[in-house]
Simulated scan of single mutants.
Amino acid sequence: MVRSWGQQPDVSAAKGRYAVQLTGVTKQFGEGPTAVLALDTVSLGIEPGTFTAVMGPSGSGKSTFLHCAAGLDRPTSGEVRLGGQDLAALRERRLTELRRTRIGFVFQAFNLLPSLTVEQNITLPLRLAGKEADAAWFHHIMTTVGLGDCLARFPTQLSGGQQQRVAIARGLVTRPQVIFADEPTGALDPETARDILGLLRQAVTDLHQTVVMVTHDPVAAAHTDHAVFLSTGRIVDEMGAPSADRVAEVLSGLRRTA
């Protein structure tokens, strides 16, 4: 379930209930007459074990939303919580540690290190945190993403779809509280994109993960539980059990009014 509270949220009883919670989040870039308001008092709660699409026209604030929600950027004002943890209360070193252990990332560009094998790329977040991979969990992930026979290969020896599977496995390996995916199928052909979306869906349904995905693709949104629509930095619409046709209709309307 996704819940937005409009511009004046009353969330005192909700702290800790949501996997991700934004309360009155504003993000401004620059100052004075050239300032850009990328997010405008956004309030949203995303419950654990759900798959959410964040959508909107170009310049609507989707990427800024993801960066603030994932602790990659600090909002100008407002509060971001991961579970019960207020990210603004953390110093940069602690925030970096939290991103390594409690947040998983999947990007359009894969971001794999070419000099590392598949197994080394997947376990990199754990090694950076000074931890060992749990053997049973690692095997479970490999079974889920279908990479068991590729562990000794290097990224250049893999197809684009296989590289994205590696990126998803890397995002899962720490048992994160939330996985943030930024246009994860944008560089893939339609058939491979469908497979990757199926894996993210499986991560939610079978592995009980929480996935928040920024996408422009109505077909991708149809794999999710909820879609949230941004325009000029504000949440303007939401949709449960989104279909590609309904999402495309909403996006078309937002583009006309943007």
Rank of each mutant, 00 (worst) to 15 (best):
H223N: 09
P75R: 06
A70T: 05
K62T: 12
A133R: 05
H140C: 08
T210N: 04
T192E: 04
V42T: 09
L200M: 09
L197K: 03
V80H: 00
I235Y: 04
T26N: 05
G6Q: 06
T96F: 03
G78V: 01
S63L: 12
D182I: 07
A38L: 11
A135W: 09
A169R: 00
V2R: 04
D225P: 13
A109I: 12
L128T: 10
L44I: 10
C68F: 01
T156A: 15
G32Y: 14
M239T: 06
C150P: 05
R93A: 14
R3C: 07
V80E: 00
F105L: 11
V118M: 07
W137L: 05
A19F: 02
Q164L: 09
Q7Y: 12
T143L: 10
P242M: 10
P48E: 14
T117L: 10
V228G: 12
Q7C: 12
Q177G: 09
M239I: 10
G253V: 03
P48S: 11
L90G: 02
P125R: 01
L128C: 07
L172A: 06
V118Q: 07
R102I: 00
Q8V: 13
N121D: 09
M1D: 15
V214R: 07
F180W: 07
L82I: 10
Q8P: 05
T215W: 09
P75W: 00
T76Y: 00
P176H: 01
A135Q: 14
A88D: 03
D189K: 01
P176C: 05
K62V: 11
V219H: 12
I141M: 08
Q7F: 11
T123M: 12
I168E: 01
G84T: 09
Q28D: 13
E97T: 13
T101K: 14
D189H: 06
P155C: 02
T192A: 09
V80K: 00
A244L: 09
Q120I: 04
V250P: 07
L66F: 02
L251M: 13
A38E: 13
M55E: 04
A193R: 00
G61S: 13
V228Y: 03
F29Y: 15
E183Y: 02
G186E: 07
M55K: 12
V118H: 06
V118C: 09
A222P: 10
E191V: 13
L87R: 02
V36E: 04
R81G: 03
